[in-house]
């Protein structure tokens, strides 16, 4: 199989890479672009650890082919902070101790940001069900919900 040349935008930067036709976007991000913040938790779209946005839409990057990224805009956890300045969501996750081992954290942050862009004022129930596709085995989710609700309130004030 010949490799495919893909030109895309990742976190606002134009990038291009060669990938196998059956290579996932997750593998391309991790192995070709060195963006290892997105994790493979299951490889079947059930855990959310590989969450990124593709043209603003939340996807599991393990279920997207790298070749599909051609001409699209990808946002990953690495682009969430502006330089050294953390996004309010990131700050609230630290403040509420809403993380432990940290493997689910990037995916949950990306998914939450996508939610708040669609719905800046979600109810707690909406947050819970939106994030039901992002598994965490350490925290128990309570502090995650608290951090999300707090960050949403702050972002609305901003």
């Amino acid at each position: 199989m010949s490799r495919i040349h893909v030109t895309t935008s990742v976190n606002g930067d134009e990038v291009d890479f060669l990938c196998e036709p059956d290579e996932t976007l997750l593998d391309a991000l991790r192995n070709r672009l060195g963006l290892t913040g997105s994790k493979e938790g299951c490889g079947t779209g059930d855990c959310g650890a590989c969450s990124v946005t593709l043209d603003g839409r939340l996807v599991c990057s393990c279920l997207v082919l790298a070749a599909e990224a051609e001409g699209r805009e990808i946002a990953t956890i690495e682009g969430m902070a502006e330089g050294e300045a953390l996004h309010p969501l990131q700050k609230k996750f630290i403040e509420h101790a809403a993380l432990q081992c940290g493997v689910c954290t990037p995916g949950i942050l990306v998914a939450t940001k996508a939610l708040l862009e669609k719905n800046p004022d979600p109810s707690e129930t909406e947050v819970r069900y939106w994030l039901a596709g992002n598994l965490c085995r350490c925290t128990g989710y309570d502090k995650i919900i608290r951090a999300v609700m707090d960050a949403a309130a702050e972002l609305r004030r901003a």
Binding site: T36, K39, L86, Q90, F93, A97, L99, Q100, G102, V103
Partner: peptide, 21 residues
Amino acid sequence: VPRRHDSAEKHVAGRAIYADD
């Protein structure tokens, strides 16, 4: 002191290095 996890800043930025990273 209720100090945050030592890697918290790296966790939220996707910069913590696990064995696969």
